[in-house]
């Protein structure tokens, strides 16, 4: 997959790909254009220039709905649940397209098996859940779409460290089932630790890419994003 995003200030000629079954991380400081990248892939923002390909098909002219129908699902930054709708209704929105509805029962059973807590609260309004529970719903909603490419945007944002641990464990488990994942994350150490490959995004450009291990070993990246292994606060070195 190749994304380029014209002369808009947010992204200037970013190119990246996610292979089948691969987990790729995009790391970088606040304001580097990470969320813009996700929104451009999903066509929530227009792409000025460049192409998007999905499994060989050119989908540059597709819209958000068409991307969903082709199997791209999103776990957005800040969860963005439908707050006044129940847990179960949020999950059902994951299988909204008519062609996906026959997988509803199967999908919901799978999500409840993964997160038993959600089963206990299936009628509760999503907006009244704790941050960690909301993240479970956001993950479940995306899994209901039976995606072939899962976009995950800042999954650790605003969550307690113990919950972040669980969320990354879940991402690892989902990936182990063979799903292709593009993980956007400010917490570089954690994101690169579970990824096969990584990209470092800075000021709308890719400034480094390669196998995650190699990136983590590079002194410059260590200094800028891994801050002596202090994974809890990667922002420090990122902003200049």
């Amino acid at each position: 997959m190749h994304v380029a995003y014209g002369d808009a200030p947010a992204l200037r000629g970013v190119s990246l790909r996610v292979g089948p079954g691969e987990l790729v991380s995009v790391v970088g400081p606040n304001g580097a254009g990470k969320t813009t990248l996700v929104n451009a892939i999903l066509r929530l923002l227009p792409i000025r220039q460049g192409t998007v390909r999905l499994g060989g098909e050119d989908v540059t002219s597709a819209d958000a709905r068409a991307m969903r129908l082709r199997g791209v699902a999103l776990i957005p930054e800040g969860r963005r649940l439908f707050a006044t709708m129940s847990v179960e209704e949020n999950l059902e929105m994951g299988c909204y397209p008519p062609s996906a509805r026959r997988y509803r029962d199967e999908g919901i059973a799978r999500v409840y098996a993964m997160f038993p807590r959600l089963k206990e609260r299936y009628r509760q309004q999503a907006g009244t859940l704790s941050g960690g529970e909301q993240q479970m719903v956001a993950i479940g909603r995306a899994m209901m779409a039976r995606p072939r490419l899962l976009l995950i945007d800042e999954p650790s944002l605003g969550l307690a460290p113990a919950i972040v641990e669980q969320v990354f464990e879940t991402i690892r488990a989902i990936h182990a089932d063979g799903l292709s994942i593009l993980l956007i994350e400010q917490n570089a150490a954690r994101a690169l630790a579970i990824a096969a490959r990584g990209y470092v995004l800075e000021d709308g450009r890719v400034v480094a890419e390669g196998p995650a291990r190699a990136l983590m070993a590079e002194p410059q990246i260590r200094a800028a994003y891994l801050g002596e292994g202090d994974a809890a606060d990667p922002r420090e070195g990122g902003e200049r």
Binding site: R68, F82, G94
Partner: peptide, 23 residues
Amino acid sequence: TYLGKAMRASAEDPAMAAAFGVR
């Protein structure tokens, strides 16, 4: 109904509803 839920979802967050296939 799915249509009714889609309306409620769209009223809350149109972009997210679109990303999950709501027209």
